[in-house]
Design a protein around this nucleic acid. Structure first.
Length: 431
RNA sequence: UCCCCGGUAGCUCAGUUGGCAGAGCAGCCGGCUGUUAACCGGCGGGCCGGAGGUUCGAGUCCUCCCCGGGGAGCCA
């Protein structure tokens, strides 16, 4: 008999099926025993009565949590069941019976304990739907870019040049030469977009920031896009379309999982329904100050400032045209205001922080040399990058979207460490 | 790097002005024919993070260290 996944059971009502999975929980009321079996797509309750064979009836009482098993039985509609169906069990067959109790119970645990057992924690309620939502976010990003003719490409993870400041790089020894783990694939995407027109990649990037907050990881995934002949305005339109597309796709494909996380899909939809508000850096500073958060013009937005913006607009909001002095060297200046950069950050609603940073890039060698000098960066490591401005340079723009922050926002979870299977944080490299 | 909170049973925690180490869950044994983190009865389970100090006496007070969590700065 071919096996069936829990998520498909609704199509098999009245027939006998085989389910292969793990024992999530069991309950007993004397002569009626209940086994909750999970298989990655969902959890279903099997009902075992003395009508089943004696071995099966005994197993329903004796199997410990996380025993792996095969379960044969008839699917029936059951209004009391969370998924609407349950299985009248004919036979249980263990695949592996643990000899020691599973460390993670169904009651509360502390974050330290759970993180020590992350490799097992990912099997539990909340973690499974969360990782399924992450999957949907990643597929939606790929689908969006594919529909628009972007070419999926790759940037190296081992690099010899820093994109941003060198203090946040992980250094390593590359056969005796200094090298780093990449903080961003952007510079390389600028090169590939001159070859392929419009490109994107999704990959891991690394920041050696000593950040201990609920929205930081040292290793996280970025979805970065770069398009030739795209200007600042077009860049914002692209980002807005992407974020709306991703939210709509996740709401459509993972409504059940959002429900399991008690995330209201309609509230999410509403947040991305209309055009995203846009404010300039200077307007944003005013909003933040009126909200009572102290900051000076010329400062970057801290977490309290982002939260104030987020609370004020209640939807994703673009903050554009930051002072060039607080932004990286590769951003093009606003021709009307040379002290401002043609850039924007997208701040997620509900205090989830910045999820996108993007800009139009410098497109002449002279400007780039001048801005490298202003940033006190050496010219030599950027020789190849300067080359891009020597042969057929064009206006171009792009952005990077933080995948985990996006998952965190869409899933509505308080801590970013649950938005990736194996988070890397300041004090944690294991498991 | 700085600030705040915490570390007691496998897990989550309580532990009074310093005076015999506790509960719930998990485990084991038993009960219950519809349970939804089921419920009911019983049993076992401790280097109170580590070192030093104060004291007749320290889980409790003091000092230092280690570990975890939250936040700042920085960032997506």
């Amino acid at each position: 008999m071919a096996s069936v996944y829990v998520e498909e059971l609704g199509r098999h009502i009245g027939t006998e099926v085989l389910i292969q999975g793990w024992l999530y929980n069991k309950r007993s009321s004397g002569r009626v025993r209940f086994v909750l079996v999970r298989d990655g797509t969902g959890i279903v309750q099997g009902v075992v009565t003395p009508d089943a064979d004696p071995r099966t009836f005994e197993l329903a009482e004796a199997l410990p949590q996380e025993a792996s098993l095969r379960m044969w039985g008839t699917v029936r509609a059951e209004p009391r069941a969370p998924g609407g169906v349950e299985v009248a069990v004919r036979r249980l067959e263990p695949v592996h019976i643990p000899s020691t109790p599973f460390p993670i119970g169904l009651k509360e645990h502390g974050p330290g304990f759970l993180m020590d057992h992350r490799h097992l924690w990912i099997r539990m309620r909340r973690q499974v739907p969360l990782l399924r939502i992450r999957d949907a976010v990643l597929w939606a990003i790929r689908a969006f870019f594919r529909e628009r003719g972007f070419v999926a490409t790759e940037a190296p993870v081992l690099v010899g040049t820093a994109v941003e400041g060198t203090t946040t790089l992980f250094p390593l020894d590359y056969f005796g030469a200094p090298a780093y783990l990449s903080q961003s694939g952007q510079l390389y995407l600028e090169a590939t977009c001159m070859a392929l027109g419009k490109v994107y990649w999704i990959g891991p990037v690394f920041r050696a920031e000593k950040s201990k907050t609920r929205r930081h990881l040292t290793e996280f995934w970025m979805a970065e896009a770069e398009q030739a002949f795209l200007d600042h305005e077009g860049n914002l339109a692209l980002q807005e379309a992407l974020v709306r597309y991703v939210v709509e796709a996740v709401v459509a494909e993972r409504a059940r999982e959002l429900g399991e996380l008690e995330r209201d899909p309609e509230a999410l939809r509403e947040e991305v329904a209309g055009p995203f508000p846009r404010v300039t850096y200077h307007e944003a500073v005013e909003v933040v100050r009126k909200a009572g958060v102290l900051m000076e013009v010329g400062d970057d937005f801290g977490a309290p400032a982002e939260d104030a913006l987020s609370a004020h607009f209640g939807r994703p909001v673009f903050v554009e045209r930051f002072p060039a002095a607080i932004k990286p060297f590769y951003m093009k200046r606003d021709p009307a205001h040379p002290d401002l950069a043609l850039c924007a950050d997208l701040i997620a609603p509900e205090g989830y922080g910045e999820i996108i940073g993007g800009s139009q890039r410098v497109d002449t060698e002279e400007e780039l040399l001048a801005q490298l000098r202003e940033a006190r960066l050496p010219e030599e490591p950027y020789r190849w990058y300067l080359d891009l401005r020597r042969w057929g340079s064009v206006p171009h723009a792009g952005f990077g979207l933080g995948v985990e922050r996006t998952v965190q926002w869409i899933a509505g979870i308080p801590h970013i460490r649950e938005a990736i299977p194996f988070p890397r944080t300041l004090e944690r490299l294991y498991p």
